[in-house]
Simulated scan of single mutants.
Amino acid sequence: MLIKECVGYELEKEKSNTSEDFFNRSEVTFVEDGEVRTLHVLYLRFFDEFIHEFTPYQKGPVWSQGDIEVTFKDIVALVCLINNPGLRQRKRLYINSKVEFASYFQNIDYNKLPEILLTVKEKGQFELRSPLEYIQKT
């Protein structure tokens, strides 16, 4: 699988009676079997306040190197895809449970994760041979 882009952003209200401003969207675009796909993960923005509970990060940006900054929103969809490769077949994932959200961050090898994101930001792609390489062995 070739990871092409990892990006996240805060949704903004389009109309006064909608609730978009309570959500973040994280996207990972990848190529598999010659097909370009994007997994869109929509989650409650409130979960960002608890990243220290299920990741080693305290707040954003989670990494920076030179002029490259990676935010928590940038990694959510990638982490979901790594922890559940079955999501490659899906276009969207909606998470409104803190327990479910936290479960995607369990067993991720956070020492190896920057390699993916920094390579994507610098070179425009990263070859992910096996998601298991980014899962901690327990």
Rank of each mutant, 00 (worst) to 15 (best):
A102Y: 07
S130L: 02
P56D: 00
F105A: 07
R25S: 13
F30V: 02
P61R: 06
V62D: 08
Y9L: 12
E122H: 01
G34E: 08
V28T: 14
R90G: 04
N83D: 03
Q58W: 10
G66K: 11
K15G: 11
L78P: 07
E12R: 14
Q125I: 01
R25C: 10
E20W: 13
K4F: 08
G66R: 08
Y110G: 04
K137W: 10
W63C: 01
F22Q: 15
D109F: 10
S16Y: 12
K98M: 15
D48Q: 05
G8A: 07
N96A: 11
K13D: 04
L132N: 10
F46C: 09
R88T: 15
K4D: 09
S16W: 14
I75A: 05
I68E: 13
E10C: 03
K98Y: 11
E27D: 04
C6G: 08
P85E: 00
F101W: 00
I82P: 03
Y94T: 02
E35G: 01
E122D: 09
N111C: 09
F126A: 03
F50I: 02
F105P: 01
I135R: 15
I3N: 05
I68G: 09
S130Q: 09
V28L: 12
V31I: 14
E32I: 10
Q89W: 06
I82H: 01
E32L: 02
Y104I: 05
I3P: 02
K4L: 15
I3D: 09
V120I: 11
V36L: 05
E69T: 13
F23R: 14
L117A: 10
F54A: 06
I108H: 01
F30R: 07
H52D: 14
L132K: 12
V62T: 04
R88Y: 10
S16C: 05
N17V: 11
K4T: 14
T29M: 05
T29I: 04
E12S: 12
Y110D: 07
V41I: 15
L78Q: 02
K91W: 03
F54M: 05
I95K: 10
T38F: 09
Y43R: 03
R45A: 15
I68V: 14
L87F: 03
S97N: 14
F22S: 11
E133D: 14
F47R: 03
N111F: 15
T29A: 06
S19A: 09
V41E: 04
N96M: 13
E100T: 11
K123M: 02
Y57W: 15
F23C: 11
K137T: 06
P61C: 13
I51D: 00
N83V: 01
R90M: 06
E14T: 07
L81F: 00
I51A: 06
E53Y: 08
T38L: 11
F126G: 04
V99R: 15
T55R: 03
V70A: 03
I135C: 07
F46Q: 15
Q65E: 10
F50Y: 12
C80V: 08
F72N: 10
P56A: 04
N96P: 04
K15Q: 14
S19R: 06
E69H: 12
L81G: 00
G8Y: 08
Q89M: 13
K98A: 02
V70R: 02
V79R: 00
E12K: 15
L42I: 14
S19C: 00
R37Q: 10
K73Y: 06
Q136G: 08
I135K: 07
F105N: 05
V120Y: 05
Q106Y: 02
S130N: 06
L118N: 11
K123V: 06
D33V: 03
